[in-house]
């Protein structure tokens, strides 16, 4: 597995660039993962990433996009819980990109 060094700390990612060990995650790591995805992080991006980490903490899975969208709509409102908003933030797929930046495994049910 490839090893990556960020801000003096080394961590492991898988072949697709997902963080291997959830516990290795911090803001610096997230910044590195975002740069790899060519995503420039704003408060709106962080809001989704933090939402995902909370979701994972509660349910122990990364949600499918449809489920993520619905859950965000419920918590942050319909103006954010929709595909357009989320794809604008994460053009290559909110589940895939935002999960990766959040340090989560690839979403189950992501097909």
């Amino acid at each position: 597995m490839p090893m990556v060094e960020v801000a003096g700390k080394t961590f492991e990612v898988d072949e697709e660039g997902y963080l291997t060990n959830l516990a290795d995650w911090n803001m610096d790591v997230a910044g590195y993962l975002a740069a790899e995805e060519k995503v420039e992080m704003t408060d709106s991006h962080w809001e989704v990433v933090n939402f995902l980490r909370e979701y994972y903490d509660e349910y122990q899975i990364a949600p499918a996009v449809r489920v993520l969208t619905k859950a965000i709509a419920k918590k942050l409102g319909a103006d954010k819980g929709n595909n357009k908003y989320l794809y604008e933030l994460f053009p290559y797929g909110p589940a895939k990109q935002a999960c990766k930046i959040a340090g989560l495994p690839k979403p189950t049910g992501c097909i």
């Binding site: 349910y59 122990q60 899975i61 949600p63 489920v67 619905k70 859950a71």
Partner: peptide, 8 residues
């Protein structure tokens, strides 16, 4: 905990 996510 994932069983509780099924509703979603």
């Amino acid at each position: 905990p994932t069983y509780r996510a099924l509703e979603g």
